[in-house]
Design a protein around this nucleic acid. Structure first.
Length: 270
DNA sequence: GCGACAG
DNA sequence: ATCTTGTCGC
């Protein structure tokens, strides 16, 4: 029988990524992005999905919009969704994007004035095997500027957790410090490798107190924003390690699951 | 066979 | 993503 659906699926997804990849805008397109203090920027968004433990089908899709620069919640939307696509490394977007887009569309319909001017995405943007991670995918399909922030290093060709990489991390001192992650040239990347895949690793810091070290996060361009601006904006949205829009989206979606699906596993007695 | 594998 | 409380450190 038609045994491996995965193989055909992956091929189809790869070509879809290649197609959409051409639509990514890797530069600043908004006025506020050029401003030293981002004047003109009033709303930053964050999206995330949280799952019920032991269930990788049902999840809570979360969108949150915060004011800038105060980072206070202006809008939040939690919605239970049923995922159909499997998680395959390099194809996260096919699993999550549809539901994140739906959330943005609900906002567009109900309170268009609250649409975020930029969206932080939990995952990579151009820092991806084919330069088209979740943040690019959501950016292109929504048309909104997007920033990818990953908590773990994806080992894209040429970028590995080498000793040198580790020492570079150790050398980071203050919040906002970073260094570029440059991929080796290769067939997948083709041209302009040095420019296309120049990622920065940055450390976030606590808002006021002295900088405290922590695991770095990996920032990359999603859509309609330059890497420079993406890193600078990410840093300015950090109170903790992960930028507030993403952190709150994560907290709110988890809280939603706690409230609506109390102890779905443990047999809680009466 | 071994390691890697965003979320 | 999720499995997991307290604990050590600044």
């Amino acid at each position: 029988m038609s045994a491996p659906p995965a193989e055909d699926l992956v091929r189809q997804w790869e070509s879809e990524q290649a197609c959409l990849r051409q639509q990514v805008v890797e530069e600043d397109t908004e006025d506020w992005q050029r401003s030293p203090d981002f004047s003109g920027l009033e709303r930053v968004g964050g999206v995330d999905l949280s799952f019920i433990k032991g269930d990788d089908i049902n999840a809570c899709a979360q969108l949150v919009v915060l004011s800038y620069p105060d980072l206070e919640v202006l809008y939040e939307d939690s919605q239970m969704v049923t995922l159909t696509a499997p998680y395959i490394a390099g194809f996260l977007a096919f699993r999550e994007t549809p539901f994140l887009l739906e959330a943005l569309q609900r906002l567009q319909e109900n309170q268009p004035t609250l649409l975020p001017q930029v969206v932080f995405v939990d995952g990579n943007g151009l820092f991806h095997y084919r330069e088209f991670g979740l943040a690019c995918h959501l950016g292109v399909l929504s048309g909104l500027p997007c920033v990818g922030v990953a908590k773990n290093l994806l080992q894209v060709q040429g970028v590995y957790k080498s000793e040198e990489h580790q020492s570079q991390i150790a050398a980071l001192q203050r919040g906002g410090d970073g260094f570029p992650l440059t991929a080796a040239s290769g067939k997948v990347l083709g041209k302009n490798v040095e420019k296309l895949l120049e990622m920065f690793l940055s450390v976030c810091r606590r808002l006021r107190s002295s900088d405290r070290s922590s695991k770095p996060v990996y920032v990359s361009v999603g859509h309609k924003i330059s890497l420079d601006t993406a890193v600078r904006l990410t840093h300015s949205c950090c109170r903790y390690r992960v930028p507030e829009p993403i952190r709150l989206a994560d907290c709110l979606s988890r809280e939603y699951l706690r409230v609506h699906f109390p102890a779905a596993d443990t047999g809680i007695k009466e």
